[in-house]
Each structure stands twice: as structure tokens, then as C-alpha cells.
Design a protein around this nucleic acid. Sequence first.
RNA 1: GGAGAUGUGGCAGAGUGGUUGAAUGCACCGCUUUCGAAAAGCGGCAUACCGAAAGGUAUCGGGGGUUCGAAUCCUCCCAUCUCCGCCA
Length: 436
Amino acid sequence: MLDIKFIRENKEIVQEGAKKKFVDVDIIKLIELDDERLKQLKEVEDLRSEVNKVSNNISRNQDSVQKMQLIEEMRAVKEDIKQKEEKLKATMEEWQKMMLEIPNVTSPDVPIGPDESGNVVIRSWGEKPVFDFKPKEHYELGEKLGIMDNTTAAEVTGARFTYFKGDLVLLQFALINYLLEIFTNGEILEKIVKEKNINISSKPFIPVIPPFMIKPNVYLKMARLLPKEDKYHLEVDDLYLIGSAEHTLGAMHIDKILNEQDMPLRYIGYSPAFRREAGAAGKDTKGIIRVHQFEKLEMETFCLPENSIQEQEFLVAIQEYFLQTLKLSYQVVMICTGDMGKPDYRQIDIETWMPGQDLYRETHTADLMTSFQSRRLNTRVRRSDGKIEPVHMNDATACAMGRTMAAILENYQQADGTIKIPEVLRKYMGNKEFIK
RNA sequence: GGAGAUGUGGCAGAGUGGUUGAAUGCACCGCUUUCGAAAAGCGGCAUACCGAAAGGUAUCGGGGGUUCGAAUCCUCCCAUCUCCGCCA
């Protein structure tokens, strides 16, 4: 949610920003509605003020006749307040609905475009591997090696589910262990900061296993509840299964004021992600690229507004470090206005090369939300001069297990269908060299 | 799931219908003192919204209600703690 004051002072920017994201909102109408809201608010507050003042007098007044008269008067005023409050409530509801529809403004360096065709590759890294045989897709490799079983999962649970077995499971835990080491090791992070020449703290991340379910109102404050069709809902308890660790990590400081000296606050959260993939019928039906349940390590950070772009660059730098040490080729993509999320100020994706599919596939994303979520979550920071303002929030994939393992299988496949294990992961897999 | 208790500012903790937005202590900030520090003394210190300001409105877990007036009374919900039950 944007600040109504900001909207009032920057009508054109907000209207233009919505247009760029192809969101249909009428800022002029919103401001008219806000005028009405303020007018009604003033009326109600003035009446309340009168009641408060008179009530105070009543307590001091000794004359019981006068007392009774004042009480009568206040009864009438109370009726008036009740009516005006109802009007105000109706106005507020309409106002809130409109406010929720206003998307975040975008960074000046975000390309303008209607959909993914407008995204811009800003750099790429690594060589695509060359095979002297036709590389297979990850699911062919996985099924043949007996480490992936979609068929049984479909019978037991349904389409877009899978069983991971044997070395694939070990590979996933190797990735987790490898990543947690990176995220909690100040020296590695310091090295990444220096190499990328980013002007930011190298403070390590705090590992978190957050709740995997979330209340609807908190989900809404994270600006991630909608569209509901894509979320799993537990009706009896009115809870949603999270679609990312972001959802419960980002809400960790709900209704709290953080201290400037504790910034940045960085978390690396591990959780499953549950997604109904409601709008994805027929897309990526094979393999594990698009499934209803996958595990993920997710970065979520809180920082001072003036550092948030640098923070995002840092998170992307960590993602790149991860892929580089795995020797996976990738490209970094600046997402355009029409393809980015409503809460995003700036979105950067990383697409990793998948030789079996002969395509770059999205494995990472980094979202800078500025204060769009924190304003609704009521997560603020007290500056050293005592001023209080909303914090900025960044969210970024550390590793989506399924897609990353798919990339490893396809990139590290051998002619005989076995998989060479990336060197950095071997020590977490009993120094094994191959999956066979 | 059953029984009981509790929920007040950054923390601790008063407050059971009327200048209580909230005593007191700790923490924190500023000043005095000091070469500096400690100690002591003085002052400041919740948040949001409206307002140019003066000031106003709201908030004592959350919603609803009673009342001229609610932290205080009623009601529903939520959370925490203790005991019992169940359970990895």
C-alpha cells in the first residue's frame, strides 16, 4: 500500500506508475474520495470532542438539574455521531478498497513493457555446456535413475506432485547445507560485497524455519493473498498454506518498531511453497519445473530506505555467487513494468540454462518492495534522530530446490545418463562423485 | 480438547466508572558536575491520523456493546501461562 500523502503529492507519478503496470486505477477519483473521507472524519471528531468536553464538565458539576440537562443534550449528539460514523465507515471501506488496488511505483531503471517480452537481459555468465550427445530433460534423467517418481505421486496425490528419492534427496540437503554456510558466514558475504563493489554491510543472515501457514489478514498485509485462487486454504481453521517463506518471514516484525542500529535485518528462511498453479493449465506439465509443492530457501531483509537498492543488488550478487560456484550458466533479467508484481518497485530475475530443454528457465527472483508491504504490516524503524518511518523490505530466492536440481541434472548429465555431482556439494554427499 | 489464571508504554509494574494517555522503577536521550568516566541532580521520552499552529481524535490483546463519560462494566474472539488429556 502506498501512503495516501505520497499519492496526494505525486498524483501524476502514481497514475503513470499504475498505467505502466497496466493496472486500471483512477487517482483523481481516489483523491476526491479522500477529500470526502477527511471531511467526514473532521465532522465526527469535532462532535466527539464536544462530548468529551461536556462529559468532563458533568463530572465536576454539582448542580444536578444542570447535570441532567447536559446528559440529555449529549444523548442527542451521540445519535448524530452514530449516523455520521456509519457514513464514514462506508466511505472508509470504499477508500480502502481503492488503496489496495494502487500498485507500487517503479524504479527509474525499470524497463517499460507490456509483458515478459519487455524484460531486458542485463548480463549473463558462464558457458553453456557442450555435449557430444543429445542432452535429456531432467525428468527423463531422474526417472531413469530412480530418484524421481511423478507417476506414483500422480496416483497418490495428483498431477504436479512428485516423489524425490535416494541421491536426489541427498542432493537437496547438500544444497541446503551449502547455502546455509554461505548465508551465515560473514567472510564469504564480505567477499561478495567487495567483489561486486556494493556499498553495504556484510552482516550475516539469521536462519529461520517459519510457520508454513498464515492468517488471511496478515497474508493481505503482505500483499500476497490475491489472487486467492492460487492459494491453498484450510477452511476449518481459516488459514492459508504459504506460497513462499517470504509470506511468514516478511511478517516477522508486524506492528513493531525496529532500531536503526539493528539494520539491516537479514533472514534466510527454509520452507515448502504451496501453489495451486491455477492459471497454469497445460504449462510445464512434465517434470518438476512447475509443481504444487516444493522446498525453498528464501532471503528476506529489512533495511533503511536509502540502502534498499544496494541491498537488492547484494541479494542478486549472492544468487550469482551461488550459481557461479555451481558452475551453472545463467542470465540476469531486469523485469519490465508489465511483468512485475504490484508490490514491486524493482524486480530482477535470474534464469538458469537448462540444456535438456534448450532454454533459460527462471530459478531466482529478487523483489524490492520499498515500503509497500511494511506500511500495511506496520513495521517501522526508529532513526537515530528519533524519527520513525516504514522500513524497506527485500525478498529474494536463495534456492528453489526443484528447479535448481533440475538445472543440475540437465547440466551435469553424462552420456550414460548418470549425473556428475557439482564439486562444492560433494562434501555434503559423502564425497560421492556421481549419481548413478 | 477440559479446568483455572493472565494480557497496560522498549522492559518491569500501579491503576476497578469522571482532569488516567495512563503512577512508579529500569532502560534510553539532553544538560549540570568532571581532565574524562562513574555517581548524583535537573529536564525529556508511546503511536497513528487531522491541523499552518494552538490544539483535536483514536488506541491499555482484538471486535462488538452498556454509559453523558470505559484501561476499569457486559459480550464474543485471540494469545500466553499452570494443571489434566492427547501427541512427534
